[in-house]
Amino acid sequence: MIYLFYILVFPGILFLSVFALAAEFIDRKLYAKLQNRIGPPWFQPLADMIKLLGKEDIVPTDANARMFKLMPLVAFTSTVTAFFYIPIWGERSIYYFNGDLVVVLYLLTIPTLTFFIGGWYSTSLFARLGSVRTLTQLFAYEVPLFMGILSSALIANSWSLSEIAVFYAHRPWFWVSNIIGFAVSLIALVGKLEKAPFDIPEAETEIVAGSFTEYSGRHLAFFRLSIDIEMIVGASLLAAVFLPFGLEFSAPIAFIFYIIKVLFIVALIAVFRTIFARLRIDQMVHFCWKYLVPLSLLQLLINLILKDILT
């Protein structure tokens, strides 16, 4: 029974959906405020969701219907699954084992692949261009993201998120050494979430909506929800690895700390979205390999040296 509760209510689907929609609202409201606009009312993401759920589902005639319909669900489940391994109200998550960090990173890659497959099988030209761009972008941000996050695991000497959290929570100033890794991972996360300046795969003015061009109704709703959840999970991952504050307190206080940390990262992403123009795909790849990868390598070097000193 308790597992069902975990999966369906907390911290599973219900909590995540509510939190994801709330985060989307904060992202949109902040974006609007930064642009000196009023912005949407609080229920707007929910209203959008309900509207999409009520709309007609259209599957293109030439599309592979099964793949086309399956992909939003795959994206949704993989993001929700990833969330169970991230500590949110204490030092330990619900499920943990040595190596869950890698599992989370791979589960977070699955949505990107579903964008590719969904876009490719919908056979629209715009969707195909978008899905190719999605993959191109994947190869650019994935390496710095992995290196940034894994280098912090290096000091903690564990590939379990919970143990990393325990390690950093008990050594208060260690997170400072990971600051470069945090910056690199945050930028890479923006690439993963396909938000400006890296919203190239769904660049509205070029390829309409990229992979999602042919999606409508329920399937689009699920895609959008899983993108929102992906944002939450990505932010939680960064918060657990790089911002190890407040985990030593009792569960409710630690949970509040967690919410603040996630919203902080969401706010940072919103600010990024506001102040940059969209890059071209070649510029994006160039930027990632020229600046982000060397920086994450530097982080790796720093952590290797630190680890040597510590032991």
Binding site: Q35, R37, A196, E204, I275, A277, R278
Partner: peptide
């Protein structure tokens, strides 16, 4: 057109 909506708004 270059994805910089903030400039548009301002």
């Amino acid at each position: 057109e270059i994805g910089f909506d903030t400039l548009l708004m301002y």
